[in-house]
Amino acid sequence: MRRSRIDRKTSETDIRLALTIEGTGRSEIDTGCGFMDHMLELFARHGRFDLFIQCDGDTGVDYHHSVEDIGIALGQAFVDALDDKKGIVRYADMVLPMDEALMLCAVDISGRGCLGFHVEMPTEKVGNMDTELVKEFFLAFTRNADVTLHFRELAGENTHHIIEAMFKAFGRVMSGACAIDEKFSEEIPSTKGVL
């Protein structure tokens, strides 16, 4: 079973994170930001990951440091859990509808951190979280997970639904790309022999 535990402590945040790739979608998440908790619960549930996150951050300032550092820790957890990436499918994509929102999400567990973010947020906040932090989370994740991740909004008017579609799709594509292809379980899916 592929799993990882990351402890990250800075002067701004103290994060404890545990990830099981072959999970059941269980989560226990406390980031200090209710909206982010909900998005990460959706990610775990739709990706069938078991995910534990406890973050004590400087939320009296804002949520920036907490959201960014959780992205860093989650990216590091995937790198650790996937080890040499032997046997993984590597690529996955989907188009996910969420009421009036329609989101394309694609991932390549490539060994190269890159984010394509083609999403317009109709509002500056959802609850008390700045919507610009969604991009900051995914930038931190891709840089630390060494994955190429693309989002393209195909339709959407409701900011909450746009972001919810992103996190549900993110869970599904990460799960699909991390899955083991039994026909090639002893191979690294790259002509380079390394990811």
Rank of each mutant, 00 (worst) to 15 (best):
T142C: 07
S110I: 10
A81K: 07
I180H: 01
E132A: 14
H118V: 03
P189K: 07
I180P: 00
M174S: 00
L115E: 05
T142K: 03
R112G: 13
I88M: 13
R90A: 14
S175K: 14
C178W: 07
G113I: 08
P189I: 10
E182R: 13
K183N: 15
M94R: 14
A145S: 14
K183F: 10
R112M: 13
T148A: 11
D146E: 04
E187P: 00
L102D: 01
E182P: 11
H118N: 12
M129R: 09
L96T: 01
L115D: 05
F137L: 15
L154M: 15
F170A: 11
A101V: 03
G113E: 06
V79T: 12
F138E: 04
L82R: 00
L96R: 08
Y91D: 07
L139P: 02
H160M: 09
F170H: 05
R112D: 12
P97T: 01
F170I: 00
A169I: 03
I109R: 12
G87R: 07
E153F: 06
L133E: 08
H150N: 04
N158I: 14
E164C: 06
I109P: 11
L154S: 06
A177D: 07
L154D: 03
D83R: 13
D93F: 11
G193T: 13
E157D: 15
R90D: 14
F151K: 06
I162N: 01
F78Y: 14
G176C: 09
I109A: 12
F167C: 02
K183I: 00
D83L: 02
K86E: 06
D83T: 03
G116F: 10
Y91V: 09
I109K: 12
H161I: 08
M94Q: 12
D80C: 06
E164L: 05
C114W: 12
V126N: 02
T131S: 13
A165C: 09
Y91W: 15
A101K: 03
G193C: 14
T123L: 03
R152F: 02
S110R: 10
A140N: 09
V95C: 08
I188C: 12
V147A: 07
C114H: 15
